[in-house]
Amino acid sequence: MTEAAQDRGNDDDGDDELSPGWDAITAAMERLYPGQEPKHYGTVIKWMLGGPDPLDGVSVWKRMEPVPHWHYLSYGLSELYTKESEVAETSGYGFELTFRLACEPEDEEPPAWAINFLQNLARYVFKSGNVFDDGHWMTANGPIALERETLIRSMGFVFDPELPAIDTPHGRVSFIQVVGLTEDEERAGKRWDTRRLLDALQPAMPLWVTDLGRPSLLDDAEVRGRVEEGAAREGSSSGFLFTEVLGWETSKRLLRAPVTEITLGARQVDELVALLPLRLPFGRDFHFASRERALVFAHGETDSVSEEDGKLTLRLSDATVRELARTLRPVAGTYEVQGLGAVRWKVQKTTIRDPQGNVVGTVG
């Protein structure tokens, strides 16, 4: 939970020497918004004291150009007060989050859900140790704003276009902007490259401002054409896909070659068959993995199947990759790919759960 404040939340005194990291970040924002006092929302109980929110606070500025929007900034993913990490050149996790949210010119208060949204992203970083960087993406498994009708259900991450990285007394800090994406835009980014996708979208999304009410930008034929041409020309930079459902079993057959039956969840089938033709023909492997096992797709002049140390490797020719993409469907059932008789594919129905573990849908 946060509360509005015009200072540093719960700082006991205002001595600038106690928060050199904070002050360096604030100075960068003051250069962007000279003379504008931001709205600040400080954390009631800090994370280090057992509170639920990892960020010490979030500040928000309002601007009218190029479109009216709120500009949110996190405080707490970098080292604000003292240097504790052993990496001298980087402050904390090395970044703070920003988020630009479209608003009406007459709006006076920034939506509180966006503050909680940034806290949730920071909580993910604190708990997992995973960091965000320019060109990353993340799915939300639902609307990024709960209880809002919106197609924005995913996120891209990019260096904030107006905030270059800064050097603070505790190390370097980058400003990573969260950009709201629709589900088909997320898929397009994985089939090409998230950073290049964001560049292709920017003419229709100035400063990458997130607008909850917008349609998919891929509905625009010109934008969609740029994205499809880029993927066809350069292939996909996505070399990994995680799945909850993955297994295989190899059965020997009398007078015939063994057959390996691969089981996978229906939810990942569309992505798998879309990404393989954008990876293997470009000479790039693709890893399809669960927590326990890994299936590796690699390019080959001829098809082959091999298993070693719990990892199954399929080497596929271009023709087999195309046939696999035509054959496999996100519907429960068993599939056989022409020309790849050594492998049988079993697709299982899978469920989609929100961050709280509630079932929000099924595939297959």
Rank of each mutant, 00 (worst) to 15 (best):
R123Q: 12
A266T: 12
R153F: 04
A112E: 14
T26P: 07
V58T: 08
T26L: 15
L264H: 00
D23H: 12
R226Q: 06
V178Q: 04
G239S: 12
K62E: 11
D184M: 01
D309M: 08
R123S: 14
K39L: 11
F117E: 11
G339I: 10
S237Y: 00
L312S: 06
T350Y: 10
R291L: 15
H299V: 00
V67I: 09
V360T: 10
T334E: 15
L264P: 00
V363I: 14
S304K: 01
A274I: 04
R322F: 14
H40Q: 13
V87F: 03
L97G: 05
S154Y: 07
P161T: 14
A319W: 07
E147N: 13
T263W: 01
G50I: 09
Y33F: 14
G142V: 08
D23I: 08
Y335F: 15
E229M: 07
E84T: 14
P215S: 05
G333T: 11
G9H: 08
N141Q: 07
A140D: 05
A204Y: 02
R153E: 15
A145G: 07
H287T: 11
I144L: 02
L207V: 02
F159A: 11
G333A: 09
L280R: 03
T320P: 05
M1R: 15
T260Q: 07
L18P: 04
L212R: 04
W61C: 01
S251K: 15
D160R: 06
E229R: 09
S174L: 02
V337Y: 13
F286G: 02
R8Y: 15
L181A: 05
R196Y: 03
T98K: 04
F240Y: 12
V125E: 13
E89L: 06
P52T: 04
P203Y: 03
E84W: 14
G94I: 11
E301W: 06
Q348E: 15
Y41D: 14
L278M: 09
G57F: 01
E271N: 08
F297S: 14
G225Y: 04
F175W: 09
P281M: 05
D16E: 15
E183P: 01
I25C: 10
G235F: 02
E86W: 00
E301M: 08
D184E: 06
L246V: 06
W208T: 02
W47D: 13
D16S: 15
A4E: 12
E149G: 04
A298Y: 07
Y33K: 05
G189W: 03
F175K: 08
R63L: 10
L163Y: 12
A28T: 04
D16C: 13
R353D: 06
T320K: 10
V363H: 09
R233K: 12
L77K: 00
L217A: 01
D53V: 01
I262A: 03
E186Q: 07
E79N: 12
R267V: 03
G51K: 05
V131S: 01
Q177Y: 00
L246D: 06
A319E: 15
R100N: 00
A204H: 04
H71G: 02
